[in-house]
Amino acid sequence: MNPATLDPIPETDGPIVRFDRVGFAYGNANPALRDVSLTLERGGFYFLTGPSGAGKSTLLKLMYLALLPTRGSLKLFDVDVGAAGRDVLPLLRRKIGVVFQDFRLLPHLTVFDNLSIPFRVRGMGYEEYAEDVEELLKWVGLGERMDALPETLSGGEQQRVAIARAVVGKPSLLIADEPTGNVDPVMGARLIKLFVELNRFGTTVVIATHDQELVRRAGVPVFRIENGQVTRGMAP
């Protein structure tokens, strides 16, 4: 099947993410998430906080479909992922950009090739994506390093590549896991500015962070997760 010919998931006016009494357990272990209900509106900007081991990563993995709920209902872009066929999940994932805490760049690929992945999995040829990739790399200040391997980049540069890869497919939902955790405060502030800018263009942004100061300054809705349960509030 040519991925480019698959029907894309249509845009709707409904919430972009809806958890309804979602639970998740790894194997037979105690549930990492219990009865989580939350809604992320289209175009929103959200923080997710909570202590280590509270279930933040599990919640994010459910959002970017690295995991599927073991209980309850999860809807992304109005599609019930539990009822969706295996062929539909990749189409949903193409609408989501993820910035991982550890970047997760493919070490054998150059910066350019890492950014080309979202295009290649859509079945696009080099001629179709090369210009977009080069433009985005210039935008994140890595235009001169597109042939470099990730191991030769600094932490900050790797993170910019990871962010560029997350946004290169123009996602409707951008999820970032501790994006400021491995960079200095100046770079952290620049990253947040970048996310705010993307949000202004309509991308829904979810950032998981321990940085309470960052959350406080943002003044946006905050989901706090503790003991596998989520509460919603505003930045203190």
């Binding site: 099947m1 991925p3 698959l6 970017y64 479909l65 690295a66 295996r86 062929d87 990749p90 189409l91 994932r93 193409r94 993820v98 997760r104 493919l106 992945i117 979202p118 999995v121 859509r122 079945g123 890869r165 497919g169």
Partner: peptide, 16 residues
């Protein structure tokens, strides 16, 4: 496996 996970997470079909 990690590369496969990345491919899946950016929307690769199993067939790809």
């Amino acid at each position: 496996r990690e590369a496969v996970e990345i491919l899946h997470l950016v929307g690769a079909q199993d067939a790809f």
